[in-house]
């Protein structure tokens, strides 16, 4: 039972209107996670809607349902209690890819080179993508302020247990 409210957790807030598509976020992410500038291995991806002149950065919202975590057959994905992030343990991941089809947002992906899956882990609470964004299109702020309706199910909602749908 919840003994009280947890401290307010922060979430990535994405404002596509401010994004210029420069991919500094992808470089920062891959540098932190892969040790090289390698956008192909970034956990955050910027989609270029060329015909509309729109750039949309997109990554895991650390959703309350945690589809990936619940689908993992070997308990390789867990919640970082500090940040609320769902984190993959490379040591435990067997590379079965079930999480990659379970996540309806398409934000956990298999890396054929390592045989493990990749997803955003909020960099332990100080996301590199937000720090690298030159236009503040990606910010890391109190969960209550992350208002993008469709990118729902943010970390704060885990506080209330579950949602009455599946």
């Amino acid at each position: 039972m919840n003994t009280g409210k947890r401290l307010m957790q922060k979430s990535l807030h994405i404002d596509p209107g401010k994004c210029t598509g420069c991919l500094q976020c992808e470089m920062a992410c891959s540098l932190d996670n892969e040790g090289a500038f390698n956008p192909a291995k970034s956990r955050i991806k910027v989609f270029d809607f060329h015909a509309e002149g729109r750039f949309v950065p997109y990554t895991c919202t650390q959703c309350a349902e945690a589809w990936c975590m619940k689908a993992c057959p070997v308990d390789a994905i867990s919640v970082d209690t500090l940040t609320g992030a769902k984190v993959v343990s490379d040591a435990l991941c067997v590379g079965c890819k079930v999480c990659t089809i379970a996540c309806p947002f398409g934000t956990i992906n298999y890396n054929q080179t390592t045989g493990k899956v990749l997803k955003c882990d909020l960099c332990g609470g100080d996301p590199e993508c937000a720090k690298a964004c030159p236009t503040s299109a990606i910010t890391f702020i109190d969960a209550d302020w992350t208002g993008l309706e469709r990118m729902r199910d943010w970390a704060s909602k885990t506080d209330s247990g579950t949602r009455a749908e599946a």
Binding site: K97, T100, I101, N111
Partner: peptide, 14 residues
């Protein structure tokens, strides 16, 4: 294909 395949679930089930 291994990238973003989960979104097919989102498209279908959503």
């Amino acid at each position: 294909h291994t990238d973003h395949v989960g979104v097919l679930r989102g498209l279908i089930q959503g």
